[in-house]
Simulated assay, not measured.
Amino acid sequence: MSWSTDYSEGHEGWAASVTPDGRRTGSSTGQGMLVEGITGRYERDTTLPDYEVVPHREIIGWQGQCECGWQGELWERVPSAEEADAGRRKVHLPLEKSAHAPEAVEDAIGDEWLEHVAPFGAVAGVEAAARDYAQAGRRLDKTVAAAKAAGATWADIGRAAGITRQAAHERWADK
């Protein structure tokens, strides 16, 4: 599963499985997790020649990833349920299970990713407001020019714009 926003390109996120050598992946086959790069330690994938298949049992944990390069903190896979402690980011997943992040971990990583992209959403709001502001400014300039052409005085225009006659003249006389 991956997450994306409608306000920020380059920020698709996912819960990546982490291999013992630190590589990360979100793809898998029945035999294991598909990891880019050839170390010679694992079997090569038959359809993707630049990928190895790391057995599910060897995945050491999960980490948030974003296509922008952001990485979350590691959620460590522990060997027993007794060692599991979500507060310390330690999660038990039996070795015979698929090594995709358990649902609770994926949800927590999704929340971390949302924190990562939150500033981009806020900035997107600023960008939209700035576009609206610039467009309104252009519309105001055209409307003032039309009012002046129709015979309005600088006092009339200033009053309508909420500024003084002099400020209106200084702002729009040369436009």
Rank of each mutant, 00 (worst) to 15 (best):
D141H: 07
W70A: 00
L93W: 09
H169Q: 13
V78A: 08
E36T: 15
D21V: 10
L48E: 11
V54F: 06
Q135G: 10
D50W: 13
E115P: 05
G10Y: 05
H116N: 04
T19W: 12
G13I: 12
W14L: 00
H116A: 02
A104K: 02
R165G: 08
D141N: 07
A129T: 10
A160H: 02
H100E: 08
E12M: 10
E52K: 11
E82D: 15
G69Y: 02
A16S: 09
Y42S: 01
K148Q: 09
V53H: 13
A15H: 08
G72H: 01
G61C: 11
S2F: 13
V54I: 06
M33A: 05
T143I: 09
R139W: 07
V53D: 13
G32K: 14
G30K: 13
E12W: 01
L74V: 09
D85A: 01
P20T: 13
L93R: 15
P79D: 15
R131L: 05
D141C: 07
A129S: 09
A128L: 04
A149F: 00
E106P: 00
E170S: 13
V117G: 03
E115W: 04
E52F: 10
G151F: 03
A136V: 04
M1E: 03
Y51T: 06
G40Q: 11
A124C: 07
A128C: 09
G61I: 14
R41S: 06
E58I: 04
I59W: 05
E112L: 14
D45Y: 13
D111L: 10
E67Y: 09
G26P: 02
V35G: 01
E73Y: 03
G64L: 14
G69S: 00
I60F: 12
G64Y: 08
S2H: 11
E73I: 04
E103V: 12
A173T: 12
A81H: 02
W154Y: 04
T47A: 13
C66K: 00
A168R: 04
L140V: 15
A108I: 06
C66H: 00
T25I: 08
A124Q: 14
S98K: 14
R165W: 08
E112Q: 14
P79G: 09
G22H: 05
W14H: 06
A104S: 08
T46I: 07
D141S: 13
L74K: 03
E103H: 06
D6A: 01
D174E: 11
A145V: 12
A161H: 01
E67V: 04
A167L: 03
E127L: 12
H100F: 13
A118Y: 00
A99C: 07
R24N: 09
E52D: 02
F120K: 05
A136G: 09
A129E: 10
A152H: 06
E67A: 11
H169Y: 15
A152N: 01
A129V: 09
I109K: 06
A108C: 04
T143R: 15
D174S: 11
D85C: 00
I163H: 03
H56Y: 06
P20H: 12
D132L: 14
G72L: 03
T29F: 08
A150C: 01
P119C: 06
T19V: 11
V35F: 09
P102V: 02
S8V: 04
W14T: 10
I38W: 07
